[in-house]
Simulated scan of single mutants.
Amino acid sequence: MSIKVIIAGPRGRMGSEAIKMVTKEKSLQLVGCIDRKNNGKTLQEIELTTFVDLNEYRDVPIYENPSECFERVEADIFIDLTIPDVGFMNTKLAIQHKIRSVVGTSGFTQEQLNELSNLAKSNNVGCIIAPNFAIGAVLMMQFSKMAAKYFPDIEIIEKHHDQKVDAPSGTAIKTLDLIQESRENKNQGHPDETEIIKGSRGGDVSGMRIHSIRLPGLVAHQEVVFGGKSELLTIKHDSFNRDSFMEGVKLAIDSVMEKNELIYGLENILEF
């Protein structure tokens, strides 16, 4: 039996890649899309960022109102790859309609995550939220956590396309969270360090520095630089195409079908 999927943000770069992935997977069936416009149209009537051979999915309906979509379309999985505020409301509604969710939207606040977690538990519905669905990026974060125990002087440089609205990225924040599990707080650099231009040294989290770069031509990139006595360790990951995230999305779909709670971070469903 196919897993029936609704996707939010079909015209976006990530949304188009998700549609491409779902339509190619024999175990998945695309049954609906949520878009901020194009209500009442079908998938064949809108322009996708990525070319997709729609075949039997040409007549998949599009809804502007997520509640209407969840009420009218029978689905097992909801995939949201939009923006934080929209993604939060969409996911909240999906859980309330007993639809399991896979969410790649970064930028949720801790309060929003707590609310979604409580909602998932009360509705006995699984939900996986991942700041990054690239398997290599998840490994990069785990390796950084391991290294931080031995190299407490750390700077993070994350680079994304110029249309990304949140900074630092969800991946960088998740990396910081993991690092703090194994690193003792430490103020790095010279105690009398002065910024001639405010913000030059980046953000400060427990003494670590984090820098966000936004430029056209980039997709998603991060390096974590560890300084030690006479040595430097750099752990780096690059996503050159949004297709790199789809293996993680597929993994999350398969996993969330067996879950009845919210899971934050793809590392929690990987085997190490």
Rank of each mutant, 00 (worst) to 15 (best):
K41V: 00
L43D: 06
Q44F: 08
E45P: 01
T49A: 08
T50D: 10
V52E: 01
L54V: 07
L54D: 02
E56H: 12
Y57D: 09
Y57C: 05
Y57L: 10
R58P: 00
D59L: 09
D59Y: 06
V60M: 00
I62C: 01
I62D: 00
I62H: 00
Y63P: 02
Y63H: 11
Y63K: 04
E64G: 08
E64Q: 15
N65D: 15
P66Q: 09
S67N: 14
C69T: 02
F70E: 09
R72N: 12
R72K: 15
V73S: 09
E74H: 09
D76S: 07
I77S: 06
I77G: 06
I79N: 06
I79R: 08
D80V: 13
L81C: 11
I83A: 12
P84E: 08
P84T: 04
D85H: 14
D85M: 14
F88D: 03
F88E: 10
N90I: 03
N90Y: 13
T91V: 08
T91S: 13
K92A: 03
A94S: 05
Q96I: 02
H97R: 06
K98N: 07
K98T: 08
I99G: 09
R100F: 14
S101H: 04
V102D: 05
S106R: 02
G107R: 12
F108C: 10
T109M: 13
T109L: 11
E111Y: 06
Q112D: 12
